[in-house]
Design a protein around this nucleic acid. Structure first.
Length: 475
DNA sequence: AATGCGCGCAACCGCCTGCGG
DNA sequence: TCCGCAGGCGGTTGCGCGCAT
């Protein structure tokens, strides 16, 4: 249905200047010139011309952004207000960054998508110079391609966090300390005990975000994708899990990011993205723009879990000042368990293996499969190893899904919303109380879930991409 | 060389929200 | 409180281009 509006006489010099070209393009122009009465202008559709761009730019220069419907009235531009706004924001406004996404940007997008879902505008606010449309197009095409190839949507770094979250959810719901009310409520978890920011403000069982947005703005620093204590396969005390997954914890390429936002003030990091890994103290002055409304609730991804808790002033302060004390983590029933487990994981990775590898082997045992929370200051080594292996049992199926099967009615009905379809509902439509939905998010295909292929290719563009699956197979 | 296909991108469409009268 | 308008956002579509056959 064409949008019809009343004709408006051209009133600006820009229109005159551009009229030679536009009169050929505007299909309704002749009607406007010939008959004033009841001769609706057919607004032009399709690609914009340079003349139209010039008119729009000139208008914005003179009158600023906003009031887009007035553009047509004031300039005679045969475009609706929406179209003008879209053209400006996506193509004409200054400081737009053109060209393909850098690997760091790609990873940031993945992380943001894992955290926010299909909130393209929100994601764009963390990518200076990028538009929501750009990000949306990138993600949809990439998702479609990877889904077709049977590859997971999210890179290992993000999936690791998802797996952490899943692990923590097991503890959360299985622990006797967790009352039903607590389980159903808005738990506040920190998955990185070393980062007070995480515990201070992250308000769902989602893993805390990797602070790639902040790191993107850190100039010459290489991006650090993992926690303060990065995984390192060679130093792992346990050969099996880390050997079979060793390649996923080495990130050989982290090119320094050059933020190309040429001008504009710097802001403290957004509360949404300041809560995760990456930045630890130090320089927080060169960070990307904040979200427009600080203090807004942390929005969950499309398939996300529970209503998020609005960060309080205290948590926000803790997020910026650092320090574990005072963070909401301590209020979580499994806080000690989570912190202990993470700390043990970190410590275990750092130290030399204290025990021979044959002591392993509890993962398939009668433990029931679900990890247990850690309540004490230390846990037996076998138990710790079991935790680690369980962690990888969670990671691997999510990381290496079985090849996609033809969708059946049953699978289509039961498939999580976030299975990679580009036509999913908005996040607001999702049941945020269903943790399984969110945590199954990286899994692109149903069935099996285990195993995987050594031929998996993480790369997005064949070359120079951090998502490359490093050599070797798994399991 | 012609054709088909996939991909990337720009733009449109419909819905929702906020705001002012 | 209701209503209309403007703007924002996410989903979808159409087109052009490059590549493979």
């Amino acid at each position: 249905m064409e949008e019809m509006i009343k004709p408006t006489p051209a009133s600006s010099e820009e229109v005159v200047a551009a009229s030679e070209e536009r009169h050929e393009e505007a299909t309704g122009r002749e009607e406007q010139d010939q008959g004033e009465e009841a001769a609706p202008v057919v607004l032009k559709k399709g690609p914009w011309t340079t003349a139209e761009d010039a008119v729009l730019v000139q208008h914005v220069r003179q009158h600023g952004e906003g009031n887009w419907n007035a553009v047509q009235r004031m300039t005679g531009l045969l475009r609706c207000g929406k179209s003008c706004r879209l053209r400006w924001t996506n193509h004409l406004r200054p400081n737009l960054k053109k060209g393909s996404f850098s690997p760091d940007e790609e990873l940031l997008i993945a992380q943001l998508h894992a955290q926010l879902g299909n909130k393209w505008a929100r994601m764009a606010s963390h990518l200076p110079g990028r538009t929501d449309n750009e990000i949306k197009n990138y993600w949809n095409t990439r998702t479609k391609r990877r889904q077709r190839a049977g590859l997971p949507v999210y890179p290992p770094e993000v999936q690791l966090h998802l797996a952490f979250a899943k692990r923590c959810r097991y503890d959360d719901f299985s622990s006797p300390l967790s009352s039903p009310q607590q389980s159903a409520g808005s738990n506040v978890l920190s998955l990185d005990a070393s980062d007070a920011a995480a515990s201070a403000g992250y308000t769902s069982v989602r893993p805390p975000p990797l602070d790639l947005a902040g790191q993107l703005a850190m100039g010459n620093r290489p991006v650090q994708f993992l926690a303060t204590t990065p995984f390192s396969a060679p130093s792992s005390p346990w050969g099996k899990p880390f050997a079979r997954n060793a390649q996923f914890f080495q990130f050989p390429h982290s090119s320094p990011v050059s933020p190309t936002t040429p001008t504009g003030p710097v802001h403290p990091v957004s509360p949404e993205l300041s809560l995760g890994y990456g930045l630890h103290g130090g320089d927080r002055t060169r960070l990307p723009p904040v979200s427009p409304s600080p203090g807004t609730r942390v929005e969950l991804p499309s398939s996300q879990l529970r209503p998020a808790m609005t960060p309080t002033a205290d948590t926000a302060a803790a997020a910026t000042t650092g320090g574990l004390a005072g963070g909401p983590l301590q209020d979580h029933p499994n806080a000690a368990s989570l912190e202990a487990m993470l700390q043990e994981l970190h410590d275990a990775i750092k130290i030399e293996p204290p025990a021979p590898p044959e002591n392993r082997g509890t993962e398939e045992g009668g433990g029931g499969g679900h990890p247990r929370g850690v309540s004490g200051d230390s846990k037996p080594e076998a138990e710790l190893k079991d935790d680690i292996e369980t962690l990888f049992d969670l990671i691997i199926p999510a990381t290496f899904p079985a090849p996609p099967e033809p969708p059946t009615a049953a699978t289509a009905a039961s498939a999580p919303n976030h299975s990679g379809s580009v036509s999913q509902h908005s996040s607001d439509d999702q049941d945020h109380s269903n943790a399984d939905v969110a945590l199954d998010l990286p899994v692109l295909s149903s069935g099996g879930g285990g195993g995987g292929s050594s031929e998996q290719d993480w790369s997005l563009d064949d070359s120079a991409c951090q998502w490359n699956n490093m050599s070797g197979g798994i399991c």
